[in-house]
């Protein structure tokens, strides 16, 4: 009982959280990343068309495959692929972040901000690594 009372007074002295307001809102990377997860999921939804095109082109024959390769080799194709790679890796890391939350961990403010930062830094670094390895696998840019 004594413990309970001590707990209550301590809680009463703690500053209560203020209700959020659109214009008075502390910037948090975590809520930006939350939006990014949905946007990347949405982008990937239509990005699956690229994978389908690739598979169907390969199954259709050399000419269809050459068309696919031509588009992916163009500047626009390269940019689309770069965006797709980043969306995929960002969503992958963001998804892992969600799964960490699902098992009840990572909710402390510092942990949340760390996870958000790790998602964005990790997805950009991984994208660069994948592209460098990709170009090396192809034998240099062309």
């Amino acid at each position: 009982m004594a413990e309970l009372e001590a707990g209550t007074t301590a809680a009463a002295r703690r500053p209560r959280p203020l209700s959020p307001h659109l214009q008075v809102y502390k910037f948090m990377l975590s809520y930006v990343m939350s939006g990014f997860h949905r946007i990347s999921g949405f982008v990937l939804y239509f990005g699956v068309l690229l994978i389908a095109w690739w598979l169907i082109a390969a199954a259709s024959g050399p000419n269809a495959y050459a068309n696919f390769e031509w588009f992916m080799g163009s500047l626009i194709g390269r940019l689309v692929l770069l965006g797709y790679t980043w969306a995929l890796l960002h969503h992958l890391l963001g998804g892992i972040r969600h799964l960490i939350w699902d098992v009840g961990r990572g909710f402390e403010p510092t942990e949340r901000e760390f996870l958000a930062l790790a998602t964005i830094v990790g997805s950009i670094s991984l994208t660069l690594i994948v592209w460098v390895v990709g170009y090396l696998a192809m034998g240099g840019p062309r």
Binding site: A58, G61, P62, Y65, L88, G134, A137, G139
Partner: peptide, 16 residues
Amino acid sequence: IIIVISLLGRSHAAVV
């Protein structure tokens, strides 16, 4: 990602 990287730049026949 690994499959795609390992197929980059290969001929159509090899990809198939």
